[in-house]
Structure formats: structure tokens, C-alpha cells
Design a protein around this nucleic acid. Structure first.
Lengths: 114, 114
DNA sequence: TCAGTATATTCGAAAATGCGAATTTACGAA
DNA sequence: TTCGTAAATTCGCATTTTCGAATATACTGA
């Protein structure tokens, strides 16, 4: 069971492991959107956008609803937003850390080291 | 900047997008561990374990500390544990949903549908 | 029915990933 | 220095991912 859980988690991560797909998820935080709006909003090729949506669908990260001519997508579970938020904080923490490191290096060593 | 943030997130997700690497991170929740312990604990080939550690290192998810003959690994930022916990809850929620769906299908339709 | 729009799927090529076998590097002890 | 252990790296190969171009599908309205 624990192995199955790990596979499940890995699948979710794999689904989110692309900047475009993260952008899609972020856009869907605002609410349901049609596929066309997403691809246009993100400046993607039609096919490419659809492919990324297919990946997210296959990992059950998003769900679709057909209405007339178009397909509306939404997050299956908004809990994933929390994950992205955590990572945003993590990102800035790391940025700050790297910056202070750079300052140290600059201040400390006079020239380039070999 | 927002694009850079998305790339950063995607890198983290990419780093976690493998059951073995998730197992490594979970093991490191308990605290620092030497590389050898991890590969043995998870039943991996020595090289393979080292490769997965290299991936996690390259994404800055773990950090290493050399002591004598061995290399100790630890999580760079335990906040990632939270992410895994969220996904565990998410997993069980989805499981429950799927189960209730199965029950509905079983109860509703008499036989296999085509 | 036919034409038009929205979306999905297929195909082929390039790139990235995952793995075990073999090799290399780094370290401690004799 | 030489040996033995821990870990990293390299290599070759199979699999997967990513992308754009082309094609197919589904629906609407005339």
C-alpha cells in the first residue's frame, strides 16, 4: 500500500513537472476555463495545449466538462493549490538564501578562485 | 519572474516524480542518513541509488555532508514533507471517491456495459 | 446535409530519463 | 604506498516526454 501511495504521489508530481502545466493549474485556481482560453492565454500551439491538458487529465489533476462546442477544465481538487503555495514560499526562501550566499562570496573573496 | 517561479516549481516536481525518490525523501523525514543506508534500505543497486540522489541534489531537494568514508544526506527544507502529507490526504480522498463510484456502478447497472 | 469552429489524437523526430554494468574517485587503515 | 570500503560517474541502451504538423472527432448553425 505504501508503495502504491508512492507511485500515486510520483504520478501527481510527474503531472506537474512542466512549467506549462503549472501555468495551467495556476490559471484554473481562478476557476473553470475552456481549453481554448487556456491555450491562448498561455500562448501555446493548439495541439500542444491539448496535449498538456491530456497529461493533467490522465493524472486526474483536472477534470473536464463539455458544453456545446467547447470543453471547460477545472481543478479536480483545489488542495493542489496549497502545494503550489508552499513551493512559492520555498522558492523565495531559497532565493534569499542564495542571495545572502552571493553577498558573502562577493564580500569575502577578493577575486575569482580556482 | 513568474515564469522563473514556474520553472523552479516544475524542477522540484520533476525531482520528486519517481517512487524511489519519494521513498528517499520520506526516509529522510526521519533525519540524516548515509547514502549506503538509503540504497540498502530501499533495495536499490548502488549506482541507481546514487543516481537518484544526484537528481535530488541537482534540484536542491537534499543536501549532503561528507564524514569520513561516507556521505550523509538530509532534506534541505523539511517543508517538502508537508507537500507529501497533503498528497497523502489527497490520495485517500481520491481512493474513497473511486470506491464509492465503483459501488454506484455495481449497484446501478446489472452487467457490463458496452 | 454542409460548413465552420473547438478540441483531441496521431505521427515522427529530438531530447530527456531510468537502469545495470563497469569504472573512477575519495577516504581510512595498515 | 597499498588495500578495502563508500559513493559518484560514465557508458550503452530502452523507454518516455515533448513538440509541431497533419489529421480526426464533435458539436453548432445554416
Amino acid at each position: 500500500m505504501t508503495e502504491q501511495l508512492r507511485r500515486f504521489k510520483a504520478e501527481i508530481f510527474q503531472g506537474l513537472a512542466h512549467p506549462v502545466r503549472i501555468a495551467i493549474v495556476e490559471a484554473l485556481c481562478e476557476g473553470e476555463r475552456p481549453a481554448g482560453w487556456l491555450t491562448e492565454h498561455l500562448g501555446l500551439e493548439q495541439a500542444n495545449g491539448s496535449q498538456h491538458l491530456a497529461v493533467l487529465r490522465s493524472k486526474q489533476i483536472i477534470v473536464s466538462r463539455k458544453q456545446g462546442n467547447q470543453v471547460f477544465y477545472s481543478l479536480r481538487d483545489p488542495v493542489l493549490i496549497k502545494v503550489l503555495e508552499i513551493l512559492r514560499r520555498y522558492f523565495y526562501a531559497q532565493l534569499a538564501e542564495t542571495e545572502s550566499l552571493m553577498r558573502q562570496v562577493k564580500a569575502g573573496a577578493g577575486g575569482a578562485r580556482r
